[in-house]
Design a protein around this nucleic acid. Structure first.
Length: 557
RNA sequence: UGGGGCGUCGACAAGCGGUAAGUCACAAGGUUUUGAUCCUUGCAUUCAGAGGUUCGAAUCCUCUCGCCCCAGCCA
C-alpha cells in the first residue's frame, strides 16, 4: 500500500535546521530505548516509527535499538526477545546496532568515579526514608545530606566498597552533588547508583550496584553518538540533569534531548504496569490477547504493520497531550486491508436455505474474483448447491421498507451467483426462523436478469455441504470508558462484552489450507485474521475490524 | 501554592508576521453483484480569553483562565 504522506512536525523541523547548519555532519542518529520489563504497545509503536522513521528518511540516518536494562529486578530475556520480534515485525531494522545499557556498565562506573574525583558526586548513607525527608518538597528546599562534604578520597573508597559488595542494599547510594534547593526536584542531588544484589540477565553477578536512568541514559546516548535523543514529555524536567552529566564529564558527544507527547488511545490503557496487571490477573489471555493494545496483540488481531505505521504518521508528533479516537486507528487498518485482503464468504450466524428447484446432487462451480477492484489478485472456484447458509440478519419475516435483503416473497442477488427468491420459511416453537425455502433463477448468473427485473440487495452465502465450520472471535473495546484510568480503578471499567465467540460459523472451503495470521475480508462483514495461537483442530478467526456499516446506522435511526 | 510544559473545527494536526493545509468523524449526492470500496461537494471570518505593538497577528508583547508533569535507591 502507499505509505502516508509525511507531514511536518516540530522534531522534523529541528532536524531540518540541524542538517542545514551541518551541526552533526549531516548525520541523524536516533535510538529506540525500551526497558525490557514488559511487552511493547501501540504507544511504543509511535516512538519506534518516530525514531526509526527520522533515521530512515535521512540519508545519513541510523537508529539504534538499545535496551535500557539498568534495573535487573524487573527485566528479563523474554521481554528482550518479544521486543525485538515486535520491532522487526513493524518493519524496522537495526542491523548490527543492538545495544544494551549494561554493555556500558564499566564505562559508566568510570564516569561515576570521574564525577567523584571532580568533587561532583558523593556516597550518601541516608536510607530511603531519610533521603526523601532531606529532599524537601515542591515548595520547600531540601537540606544537604550529612555526607555531602566528605572527602574525595573517602568517597572513592566508599564507592569501591559499594561495588565490592561490602554494603547491604539500601544503605548507600552514590549521589550527584548539584543543588539541594533547586526548584527542579531532579537536581536535588539525585541518586546515580544504588546497591542491588540481584542477578542481571546479561551481566550475571558481576555487579551489585546499578546505575540509575538519568545517569545511564545521557551517557549511553553520548557513547553511541546519538544526535537527537527523543523521549516523552515527563522527562522534560530531567533535561537539565541530562545536560549536567554530559557537561560535567565533558563528553565529546552531547545529544539534544527532545520531548514529545506520548500516545493515548480511547478505550484502552497505555502503561506497561497496567497491561501487566491484566495479564497477571488473567483478565486477558496474555500479552498478545487480540484486545490488548500491545503490538503482539494487534498483530494477532490482524492489524498489518503498514496500517500501524500509517496510523503513527497520521496522528502526528507534538507536545500537546491528546487522546486519539479509536476510529482513526480502525480507518487505517481498513484502508490497508481493503487493498490487500482477499475476499471470502463466511456466514457468522447461519440460516439454512433450501433451493427447491435445484436437484440434491447438483453442484455448480462458480468462479469468483478474490478482489473486486484488483483482478491481478486472481480468482477462485466456489461451489453452489441446493442447500446454502445465509446470514440470519439477512432475512426478516416482516421487513421494513428500506430493508434490501430477504423476506417472504422477496428476491435478492446471491453474490457472484444467481437471484434467489424466498417462497416460504419455517419457524420453531419460539417463532425463531429455522429454514428458508427458496427458488433460484438459473438465467441470472452474472448478476442480471434477461427480463430486466432488478433486485436491490446482494447477500453472501455458502454451500452447506461444502462449508467448513469455524470459530470466530468478535472483539469490542477492552474498556467501556473512553479513558479507563480517569476515575478510580481502571479494572472496574473493563468491558464485560469485549469478546463474543461464535462457534458455528460457516466458511467457504477455499481457505482450507490458509496459514496462520492470514487476513481475509469476509464479504459484507469485515476483516478477519486466522488466529496464530490456533492449536490443531479447528479454524479460529479473529475479527480485526468490521466493515463500515451504513445499514446499521440507518437502523439505529 | 516552587519549577517545567501545553491550549488552532467533534478527534488529531499543519501553520512560525501577509490574511486558517491535510486526515478521521459528520452531512448531502454519484458509481457499484459487498448498504464495502471509489468519486464529488459541504463542514473554523477564526486560532483558550482580554488588552497592546503593527498597514497587517494564530504567529510578537503583557496579563488572565484552563489542563498536564515533578517530592522512586523505577524508567
Amino acid at each position: 500500500m502507499t505509505e502516508e504522506k509525511v507531514q511536518s512536525n516540530f522534531i522534523r523541523t529541528i532536524i531540518a535546521k540541524d542538517l542545514e547548519s551541518e551541526k552533526h555532519d549531516g548525520k541523524v542518529t536516533t535510538r529506540f530505548p525500551p526497558e525490557p520489563n514488559g511487552y511493547l504497545h501501540i504507544g511504543h509503536a509511535k516512538s519506534i516509527c518516530l525514531n526509526f522513521g527520522l533515521a530512515n528518511e535521512n540519508e545519513k540516518g541510523t537508529c539504534n535499538l538499545r535496551f535500557d536494562d539498568t534495573n535487573p529486578e524487573k527485566e528479563n530475556i523474554e521481554y528482550i526477545n518479544a521486543i525485538k520480534s515486535d520491532v522487526e515485525w513493524l518493519g524496522f531494522n537495526w542491523e548490527d546496532r543492538e545495544f544494551y545499557s549494561s554493555d556500558y556498565f564499566e564505562k559508566l562506573y568510570n564516569f561515576a568515579t570521574q564525577l567523584i574525583k571532580n568533587g561532583k558526586a558523593y556516597v550518601c548513607s541516608l536510607n530511603a526514608d531519610d533521603m526523601r525527608e532531606y529532599r524537601g518538597t515542591l515548595t520547600k528546599p531540601g537540606k544537604p545530606s550529612p555526607d555531602r562534604d566528605k572527602s574525595i578520597e573517602d568517597n572513592i573508597e566508599l564507592f569501591e566498597s559499594m561495588r565490592a559488595g561490602e554494603f547491604e542494599e539500601g544503605t548507600h547510594t552514590l549521589r550527584a552533588k548539584i543543588d539541594m534547593s533547586s526548584s527542579n526536584m531532579n537536581l536535588r542531588d539525585p541518586a546515580i547508583y544504588r546497591i542491588k544484589k540481584v542477578h542481571h540477565h546479561r551481566t550475571g553477578d558481576k555487579w551489585c550496584i546499578y546505575p540509575m536512568y538519568d545517569f545511564t541514559h545521557c551517557l549511553s546516548d553520548s557513547i553511541e553518538n546519538i544526535t537527537h535523543s527523543i523521549c516523552t514529555l515527563e522527562f522534560e524536567d530531567h533535561r537539565p540533569l541530562y545536560d549536567w552529566f554530559l557537561d560535567e564529564l565533558k563528553t565529546e558527544c552531547h545529544p539534544q534531548q527532545i520531548e514529545f507527547a506520548r500516545l493515548n488511545l480511547e478505550y484502552t490503557v497505555m502503561s506497561k504496569r497496567k497491561l501487566m496487571k491484566l495479564v497477571e490477573k488473567n483478565l486477558v489471555e496474555g500479552w498478545n490477547d487480540p484486545r490488548m493494545p500491545t503490538i503482539s496483540g494487534m498483530r494477532r488481531r490482524g492489524y498489518s504493520p503498514a496500517s500501524i505505521r500509517n496510523f503513527c504518521e497520521r496522528i502526528g508528533v507534538g507536545k500537546k497531550e491528546s487522546r486519539i479516537e479509536f476510529g482513526m486507528l480502525e480507518e487505517k487498518v481498513r484502508e490497508d486491508l481493503n487493498e490487500n485482503a482477499k475476499r471470502v464468504s463466511c456466514i457468522l450466524k447461519p440460516l439454512k436455505v433450501i433451493i427447491e428447484n435445484l436437484p440434491e446432487d447438483e453442484v455448480i462451480e462458480l468462479s469468483t474474483q478474490n478482489h473486486p477492484q484488483k483482478p491481478e489478485m486472481g480468482e477462485r472456484i466456489v461451489p453452489f448447491s441446493r442447500e446454502l447458509y445465509i446470514e440470519r440478519d439477512d432475512f426478516m419475516i416482516d421487513p421494513p421498507k428500506k430493508f434490501f435483503r430477504l423476506g417472504p416473497g422477496k428476491e435478492v442477488r446471491l453474490r457472484f451467483a444467481f437471484f434467489l427468491k424466498c417462497i416460504d420459511y419455517k419457524t420453531d416453537e419460539n417463532g425463531e426462523v429455522t429454514e428458508l425455502r427458496c427458488t433460484y433463477d438459473p438465467e441470472t448468473l452474472g448478476g442480471k436478469a434477461p427480463d430486466g427485473r432488478k433486485v436491490k440487495g446482494t447477500i453472501h452465502w455458502v454451500s452447506a455441504k461444502h462449508a467448513l465450520t469455524a470459530r470466530v472471535n468478535l472483539y469490542g473495546m477492552l474498556f467501556s470508558d473512553i479513558n479507563p484510568e480517569e476515575s478510580g480503578d481502571f479494572l472496574e471499567n473493563l468491558n464485560p462484552e469485549s469478546i463474543e465467540v461464535l462457534d458455528d460459523c460457516k466458511i467457504e472451503p477455499s481457505i482450507k489450507d490458509a496459514e496462520k495470521e492470514t487476513t481475509y475480508q469476509f464479504e459484507r462483514q469485515g476483516y478477519f485474521c486466522i488466529d496464530s495461537n490456533d492449536d490443531a483442530n479447528g479454524l479460529i478467526f479473529n475479527r480485526t475490524v468490521s466493515l463500515r456499516d451504513t445499514w446499521a446506522k440507518i437502523k439505529k435511526g
